[in-house]
Amino acid sequence: MKILRAEKLRKEYLLGKCRVRALRGLDLDIHSGEMVCVMGASGSGKTTLLNLLGLLDTPTSGAVWLQNRPTQNLSYREAARLRSRFLAFIFQSFNLFPVLSAFENVEYPLLFHPLPSRERRERVWRALEAVGLLDAASQRPDELSGGQRQRVAIARALVTRPLLILADEPTANLDAESAETVMAAMRRLNLEHRTTFIFSTHDPRVVHHATRVVEISDGVIPYEGAAATVRNILEKRLSK
């Protein structure tokens, strides 16, 4: 089932008098249960694309369809409502609330959903369990390692049962080992709970966790395909 569709997306930034074309007419579909990797060099437009798909920003032209409904001309409030109901985010620098414990951080987005408190707490525990952090529930972010923090962020994204989780370079601030555990946690959720992910990276080592790879370069998608095929291409490029 197609849950998100981007059509002829263009995004231009004004940098002084200079016009930066970050996205130049990009098309992309995302289906339920996928784990899509957006791959590209620095400045290729990954963050811009994920911001538009996550309804955090509006395109210069083109459209994003969420569950076959157009999202142009939404008010701030309407966009906020769609985000809190259908989307969730994982950030490169974790963005946890430093004053809240891991449990409270995961609970936070649920506070704005009408749920009985018992079910809310249960969901938080299950989300923490899913990322293997039951023991860290009462810890504050500054008492956790980078990898643990990002797994708390994953639990926080997971807990509202969103249609799609968007993760912009979730491993960029992590060492190789933590990056691997974080990606593995996401992949397991994708396999076991059919949680749909789209994540961006410029690190070829994490690509293999994706079910589909989209390469982005200068604001267009020159290539997309199954992860295995892309890995072959990448390996050829790397060996050159």
């Binding site: 701030y76 409030r77 906020a80 409502r81 809190s84 985010f89 963005n95 609330f97 936070y108 987005p109």
Partner: peptide, 11 residues
């Protein structure tokens, strides 16, 4: 932090 709150749907 405030950006994060707004991304999660806070007004």
């Amino acid at each position: 932090e405030f950006g994060t709150m707004m991304a999660m749907g806070n007004g």
